[in-house]
Write a protein that binds this DNA or RNA. Structure first.
Length: 408
DNA sequence: TCTGGGGTCCTAGGACCC
DNA sequence: TCTGGGGTCCTAGGACCC
């Protein structure tokens, strides 16, 4: 049966299946995923050879810091990312604890992305240490994707001195799970006809989007592996997790994912937040911090030539309860005084539980648009905004201390 | 020595309108 | 006096990712 003969219909399942196969082949993709091994720690060990072979832990070093990356030597002590630094110190007292150097990691990440772009223009960074590459249709330039995967896997360590895991599959979901399976330092190729067997034994929490809460709910129902998840009907999954959530799980369990590889997604929000070493109680100090965070956000807005029309604050109390307040502005702006005034206004809408200190404050903006879309100033004095911008550019973000405590 | 910082996406509920 | 349903917009919260 070389060609499609007949009409796909429920009464003719063989033909329907054949049509489905043809449709899938017509859309077949090859997606590669690169995941740098223990990236931040590996960069530190690369830059400081005396640290090689030692447990290196890149982490926030303050009293409330957490681990960003632990080297494999440190993982042997039970240290892993997102663990409180204090706990990591107890588990691994002789570990080398270092604060992150993001500017340096960004350099190396760009070096890796440059290697990847030799093989396809469609390179989508997922974070500093991960990226997707769409190799579909690059065969005539670079050869079969399987060979390209081997080449990339060899070339990244050769050119950066850092090891990586590489996964290759028919979509992002499978490529990422393949690189997970190859960690550390390996290469895993999953062909389309191998997808279901590859997925079946994996625990449901390995799936993209299944976190602790969803996993716990699935476990309660006796579902632990992807094969078990796949045996649940779509309507039942939807009754448990809602129409979208249910369909998402149904598709994930079958390895279905048509999310495209997109090289540059414009940011949808910008935010800054700080967890304080000691809880804040003083209202003036809190307001001063909100203004400081606001100006950090304004700096980024202006650096990227953007305006924002939504402002949000986030407050986390000592008991970890978190509240947010947001407001929609009449027009988009990057005006420092306007935005700080909105932020302080939002703060007055936060109910304060008696006796609870504040451990985190955050300020964010959303509904971003390019600054060329700026509305003509009617009532705001734009010369003032311009003057503030120039002073802060010339003398740094702390130059205008009229925004300090007790003076706002 | 309990729990970072920067994001994305989804849902639920209330207001408001027809 | 009692009683609709649907659609849209906005806000707050939460799950999840690295």
């Amino acid at each position: 049966m070389g060609i499609l003969t007949g009409v796909a219909s429920p009464g003719n399942p063989g033909v329907a299946r054949q049509a489905e196969t043809l449709r899938i082949n017509a859309m077949a993709r090859w997606i590669l995923h690169v995941d740098m091994d223990a990236f931040y720690a590996a960069v530190e060990q690369h830059d400081h050879p005396e640290l090689r072979g030692k447990p290196v832990i890149v982490a926030g070093l303050g009293p409330r810091g957490v681990v960003a990356t632990a080297s494999y030597e440190a993982r042997a002590f039970g240290v892993h990312s997102a663990m409180p630094t204090a706990q990591a110190r107890r588990l691994c007292p002789h570990g080398v604890f270092l604060p992150p150097r993001f500017a340096r990691y960004e350099e190396v990440a760009e070096q890796v992305r440059t290697i990847l772009r030799r093989y396809s223009p469609l390179v989508e960074p997922l974070s500093l240490d991960e990226a997707f590459v769409d190799l579909t249709g690059t065969e005539h330039l670079h050869g079969p994707p399987e060979r390209v995967a081997h080449e990339i896997h060899r070339r990244i360590p050769a050119e950066t001195g850092l090891s990586c895991a590489v996964g290759l599959g028919p979509n992002k979901l499978i490529a990422k799970l393949a690189s997970d399976a190859a960690k550390p330092g390996g290469l895993r190729i999953v062909r389309p006809d191998e997808v279901l067997d590859f997925l079946s034994p994996l625990p449901v929490e390995d799936l993209w989007g299944v976190g602790p809460k969803t996993a716990a709910r699935l476990h309660e129902k006796g579902i632990h592996t992807v094969a078990e998840l796949r045996s649940i009907s779509l309507p039942l999954l939807q009754s448990w997790f809602g129409p979208k959530g249910g369909e998402q799980l149904w598709r994930l369990s079958r390895g279905l994912d048509d999310d495209p590889v997109v090289p540059a997604r414009p940011a949808k929000s910008i935010s800054h937040e700080t967890t304080y070493p000691q809880d804040l109680f003083d209202p003036e100090e809190i307001k001063a911090e909100l203004r400081r965070l606001s100006l950090l956000v304004v700096d980024r807005l202006q650096a990227e030539g953007l305006l924002a029309q939504t402002v949000q604050i986030k407050v986390r109390f000592a008991d970890f309860t978190t509240v947010t307040r947001q407001t929609h502005l009449p027009e988009p702006t990057d005006h420092p005084l306007l935005l700080t005034a909105e932020v302080v206004g939002l703060w007055t809408r936060v109910p304060l539980p008696a006796g609870l200190g504040i451990r985190l404050l955050g300020v964010g903006v959303a509904e971003l648009c390019p600054a060329e879309f700026r509305a003509l100033p009617l009532f705001t004095d734009d010369r003032l905004a311009q003057a503030i911008r120039e002073i802060r550019q010339k003398h740094g973000p702390h130059a205008l201390n009229f925004l300090g405590p007790g003076q706002g």
